[in-house]
Design a protein around this nucleic acid. Structure first.
Lengths: 246, 246
DNA sequence: TTTTTGTATTCTGCATGCAAATTAAGGAGA
DNA sequence: TCTCCTTAATTTGCATGCAGAATACAAAAA
């Protein structure tokens, strides 16, 4: 029942994010019990369902208020996205976090961000840039408040907005999928005050490069920013993993 | 019934390819009627189910010899991979080919290939390189024979082997997914003799750079090779699309 | 002839039921 | 006490059934 309430909490969040994205999502107006499934995905990404957790069909279906059929379809999707693993005749588990796989994912994201740096300066509209600037200051507000969770959320929103502003929806979709796998780790991390400062400073520079539409510089900045992030994430993984279930 | 026989033909192909890949596939030992679903995916990629085709659940389920439930699960997967589109309450269609989307996909693949160039020279084992060389000569054999279909297949195999030899399974999975969307166009194209020559020459250079483990050069070669491919693919799309259903 | 509206048919979306596989439990033997 | 084997209880995988939505069709009106 504990898990149930958490899943319910996550619902509104997932819904609003889905709405924000839907304009670009190729599977735009989805049928099925999409909300319930977004809820499940979000629960995995946010670590509310810890890596390795067995996903019992009947139990989860009851908790989500749907039947097993659409839930099984969701499992297939999640497996395809790397968030769950399907064990033949033994159901699904939340994909365990392997440092190597996360590292590989970040490498691929690095390649994508290089492309983002190139494209976004060419293609972003002024209003998109203005929106990113607004997100940036909301993020700084969260930083000033010391609200780590809100900081992460705005941080994510900025990076997604950057990718979206490239105008390349394939890039966005690919990025999101990889990002979801990394976010799971991110939620496990605590940021030291100094590293947090550095990250904010990096974002400041990113915003400037974007405003100046300096593609080359933005590419470099995103690259080094990701390198920082990679280091931080891998640091978390080499420590004994104390999954943040709370 | 015509489609049925074609799907049956594709079965062995898909099965053998799946076996070759399974070692890296994260959803390795899959449950469900995986063979039937691979068959369907392959039919879409090979253009045997033309873009825009309505995917009738009951009809397809009968043709594939499975029930609607696993087929619907397959639809979700295909939609997630971009090969099908889900229309709420109106079922699924084979994703229509839009030049813009293909172009975006190729752009993303370009970013990934840059990474491939870097990584493969560092990480490929000698036996993997030897295997790629073998594939290369098989491809040349197909070229000499003038067998376009076999040429394409070996060509694909080489590129996948290159990506696989990076040792980055996330990269491979991402690449494969994007590649499947482009392959559909590729099968529609005919190659002029001169362009075919050029492509083979490019592959020759790629093999040399790989043998020398010259990462920077390989990166450049892959980049220009993809640029060629992009031009060829987009050329096909600007022509009136006469989908090759046969 | 063209448009429109009401009805019948088809099809999707989901819940449920059943068989096969897996896991858990219990008891016999070492 | 531990191991191995037999058996019961879960659990998955898939087929099927049913309600609701969408489409196709036909008759009536313009």
């Amino acid at each position: 029942m504990l898990v149930l309430s958490r899943l319910a909490d996550a619902a509104s969040n997932a819904a609003s994010e889905a709405a924000a994205i839907s304009a670009v999502d190729p599977i735009a107006r989805r049928p099925l019990h999409a909300a319930a499934i977004d809820r499940l995905r979000e629960a995995i990404v946010r670590g509310e369902l810890a890596p390795g957790t067995r996903l019992n069909e009947r139990v989860l279906a009851t908790q989500l208020g749907i039947s097993r059929t659409p839930l099984r379809e969701a499992f297939k999707l999640l497996a395809n996205e790397g968030l769950a693993e399907l064990l033949p005749n033994r159901g699904a588990i939340v994909t365990p976090i392997h440092a190597e796989r996360i590292e590989q994912t970040l490498r691929v994201m690095g390649a994508l961000e290089a492309l983002v740096g190139e494209l976004v300066c060419q293609n972003a509209s002024d209003s998109e840039i203005a929106n990113i600037r607004a997100l940036h200051f909301e993020m700084r507000a969260a930083h000033a408040r010391g609200d780590l969770r809100a900081y992460f959320d705005h941080n994510q929103a900025i990076h997604l907005a950057l990718v979206q502003a490239t105008g390349n929806s394939v890039l966005l979709q690919t990025y999101r999928q990889l990002n979801d796998n990394v976010r799971r780790v991110r939620y496990m991390a605590n940021l030291s005050a100094s590293r947090w400062e550095v990250a904010v400073a990096e974002h400041e520079a990113i915003l400037q490069a974007l405003t100046a539409r300096d593609g080359m510089r933005l590419k470099e900045l995103l690259s080094s920013h990701l390198a920082q992030k990679t280091a931080a994430v891998l640091a978390v993984l080499t420590e004994p993993i104390t999954a943040v279930t709370a």
